[in-house]
Write a protein that binds this DNA or RNA. Sequence first.
DNA 1: ATGCCTGAAGGGTTCAGA
Length: 287
Amino acid sequence: MRVATWNVNSIKQRLPRLYPWLDERRPDVVCLQETKLADDAFAELLGEQLAQRGYKVAVHGEATWNGVAILSRVGLDEVSRGLEGAPGFPLPEARAIAATCGGIRMISVYVPNGRAPGSEHYQYKLAWLEALREAVAGGPQEMVVCGDMNIAPADEDVFDPEAYIGQTHVTAPERAALGALQALGLRDVVRDRWPHERVFTYWDYRAGMFHQDLGMRIDLVLATSPVATRVKAAWVDRHARKGSGPSDHAPVIIDLDEAPDGDIGPVVPPPSAPAAKRGAKKLPQAR
DNA sequence: ATGCCTGAAGGGTTCAGA
């Protein structure tokens, strides 16, 4: 099963890149961020093309900013929009959506940017991350939290740590918040696979940053151990960042081996366990 | 000059992104 996450920076603008990419990479599950499109417009604009490719779609969008979605052709169950207990700014924003796909609880997130350390946006970012941690805690065994975390986990994840001192995305509180999330048992599967490589997922549009490979790794796939042990490939699709009209983020692609019991695809609960206990659980609620 | 790009809203420019 192939899982991908991609901050598309406006799905409407990215259509000429999205469809060829789907046809080339053929992901089974796609977590999208920054769709920047209302739900009805999403269905109207993409519904037919995605259905033709076999995707079911779950969206949680807004007219202008933010917006997340999950596309899946291995089942799309127990869709949960938003994040229980998450703060707003001041109103809740469309930054999280969850669904169970192929037996795995998938959560697509677009973490607030934070703008400047100490700002109200920064406080919002930290509070939102805490709400995410609480929501993920107590979740099912097979879970993937992926998307634009807007945090570079370590200095190796930015092109020039010196240049980022005092900037958002690298501060200790942000990294601690990410660490607290991972402490629930979530592994950073791309870094696990490439422990010493220079791996970025975002490059500023300006000043030829991509062509000089001056970027950051802020789009992450975090997986619980039962999922992480199935990872056969984990990579950043830099090709999608090239050419005309790219997003400023590249997709991250994960290939999973079959589950040990061969239980892949639509969830079929065993006779002894009701569906609700088989990873078909709703996005865990905050306390 | 954070605004060297890009996108969105709403107008002829401003805000947001990381």
